[in-house]
Each structure stands twice: as C-alpha cells, then as structure tokens.
Simulated scan of single mutants.
Amino acid sequence: MNLASVDPKLLFLLNAVFDEVHLARAAARVGLPLPAAASALERCRQLFQDPLLEDGGQAMRLTSAAQALRQPLRLALAAAGHGRPEREAGVAGIAQRVRLLMADYPAQAVAQPLYAELAASAPRLDLEFQPWRSNADAALRLERGEVDLVIGSPAPLHGPIYSREVLQERCVAVMRHDHPAAQQLTLQKWLAYPQLRVSSHDTLNRMLDEQLAAQGLALRIGVSVPNFLMAAPLLQASDLIALMPMHCVPAATAAHPVPLGCLRPPLPVAGLSLHLLRHQRSDDDIAVVHVAQALERVVRRHVAGR
C-alpha cells in the first residue's frame, strides 16, 4: 500500500501506537479521545488487513506486519514533512514515552540521575521502567518492539539490534562478614554451604552451572529469588552464599548497616559485560537515541565507579 495515500491523522496515530504498543497512551500522545483513537485504529486494521496489535500475555505486542510497517511509516511521515516541528524544536520539545528494561540493579542506581538529567534536557519525555525477567526475555521484547532500550548481558540476538558495552562486571562471592567461610573460601567450603541464586540473572547462572558441571560438581541452591533487592537480608541472616556481579551487591542500609563481605570466587569465573541494546527501528527516533546516550553516561558515572 502507498502510505502517502493514507490520511495523515491515521498515520500519526499509528506511529504513536507502534511506539507505545498501547492504545490509550498513543491516544494521549497525539491528543485524541480514546473512542476516536480506537475507531482510527480499527480503520488502520482494515486498511492493512492485519490486527497490528496482539495479546502478548502480560502486555500487548506488535504483529509481524506492524513491525514491518514501522520504518516505512516513519519514512512516509518524514517525506511528507510531518514531524518536522519536533525535529526543529529539538529533543526538548518532544513529548514521548521511552520504555526501559533492566534488572533492579542497575535500575536502582540509574533511575534518579537519569531522570534528573532528562528533566533538564528533555523535560517532556516520560520514562517507563518495565519489569525484568531475564536477559533472553529482554532481547525478545526488544526485537518485538515492546521496549525501546535494554541494559543487560547480551543474550542471543536476532535482527538489526545495536549492542554497546557500557560496563565490565567482576563477579564476587557474597556472604555475611562473619560467615564461617569468610576467612578462607575454598571450593570445598563453597560447595558445602547452600547458595542464594538470583533467578533473573540467567546468563551468570548458566555460565556457573556449566563450569561446575564440567568438573562433575554442582551447587545446592538453598534459596532462589527473582531480584537482587531480596538478597541482602537473606545473606545477612544466614549461611547462604551468592555469586553476584560486583555492581549488584547491595550497599549497607539503615536496615542492614553492616556491609556484606565480597570474596574472590574459589574457581575462575569470567567477567560479565553489561550492554546497552537498541533496535535499528529507533534510528530516526530522536527521543530514544537521546535517552540511550544519557543512559550510557549515567551507567558509566553511577554504576561503573562502584
């Protein structure tokens, strides 16, 4: 279909729907009442003979036909001169939601400084931090257009995705300071104690299991938790040991004022690289590119220095 022949109002809405993957947010972005936006989306579905949005389980996602339309749609809008006022005004004039995906660490460290930086440079941008499940899930959601930017360890990637290293992580064995194994952590002692595992850090868990299995060994997983925020109280009050990237080790807090002990693991564990991932579909998206650049600066400043 020749997109130049389609009503520009429909194209504006469709572009917002593709960015937001959410009709209500898209309607608010283009200034349409929700019933009118729903009617316009239905017209688009009829024009392109495709539902465009489909149920992705916990959230809607773009169909394959919608994914294929994203770049031609943006090119058509640019060719017609639509969207030029936003570019002339610069990123400071853009009202848009940018969707981010990363584990609770480093999200806890970067959320405040990132918002502060963007409030100064792009005050009309909104940030949406989405729930983290795993590196593999994050890569899949980026490919589907459900998120705009990902911070994580690279999982197998498909399609035109940019991957830029922003941090090299060193892995440490973490336990309470007075843990019986804290003075001399041998492999035998490490295997003798139950482990705390953060299930969402699938890349590290897989690497460790494979390395131990090659020696005919295995860890006993005493507790598996979904995020790093749950780790500190469990480690402080037990004989559990956790293998974590150094930047993910929770700092001392008022609730747990004694910092955790961090020791060299008793077997060589390869460092993990943390990457900023962005899909090629956002090349012409000023807002996403601006947030990506700001996010990289913030990670290097507030996480890499820990």
Score class of each variant (00 low, 15 high):
residue 218 A to T: 06
residue 161 I to Y: 07
residue 213 A to D: 09
residue 181 A to G: 03
residue 204 L to C: 02
residue 249 V to D: 07
residue 159 G to F: 09
residue 241 I to E: 13
residue 160 P to K: 15
residue 178 D to H: 04
residue 233 P to S: 07
residue 182 A to R: 03
residue 164 R to C: 06
residue 257 P to M: 11
residue 197 R to P: 01
residue 157 L to N: 05
residue 157 L to G: 01
residue 191 L to H: 09
residue 225 V to P: 00
residue 203 T to E: 13
residue 237 A to I: 00
residue 250 P to A: 05
residue 181 A to R: 00
residue 165 E to I: 10
residue 180 P to A: 02
residue 184 Q to W: 15
residue 255 A to K: 13
residue 214 A to H: 09
residue 208 L to C: 08
residue 253 T to D: 11
residue 243 L to A: 03
residue 237 A to W: 00
residue 171 C to Y: 08
residue 210 E to C: 06
residue 209 D to V: 09
residue 185 L to I: 04
residue 221 I to D: 06
residue 207 M to Y: 14
residue 165 E to S: 14
residue 201 H to V: 00
residue 219 L to F: 15
residue 207 M to T: 03
residue 231 A to S: 02
residue 208 L to W: 06
residue 214 A to L: 10
residue 176 R to I: 05
residue 168 Q to V: 01
residue 169 E to A: 14
residue 168 Q to T: 12
residue 239 D to Y: 03
residue 220 R to N: 04
residue 188 Q to E: 15
residue 236 Q to F: 06
residue 201 H to T: 00
residue 196 L to N: 09
residue 192 A to N: 08
residue 185 L to G: 04
residue 200 S to I: 01
residue 253 T to H: 02
residue 229 L to C: 04
residue 219 L to W: 11
residue 235 L to I: 02
residue 177 H to T: 03
residue 197 R to D: 05
residue 221 I to F: 01
residue 162 Y to V: 01
residue 242 A to W: 08
residue 195 Q to L: 08
residue 198 V to R: 00
residue 254 A to Y: 14
residue 181 A to E: 06
residue 253 T to R: 03
residue 252 A to P: 06
residue 222 G to Q: 04
residue 182 A to W: 13
residue 157 L to I: 14
residue 228 F to M: 10
residue 250 P to R: 01
residue 238 S to V: 02
residue 248 C to K: 07
residue 207 M to A: 14
residue 241 I to L: 09
residue 225 V to A: 00
residue 177 H to W: 12
residue 204 L to N: 03
residue 190 W to F: 15
residue 196 L to F: 12
residue 167 L to M: 10
residue 216 G to T: 03
residue 252 A to G: 03
residue 256 H to D: 08
residue 199 S to P: 01
residue 195 Q to A: 14
residue 232 A to N: 05
residue 249 V to A: 07
residue 231 A to L: 05
residue 176 R to Y: 08
residue 191 L to A: 04
residue 234 L to Y: 03
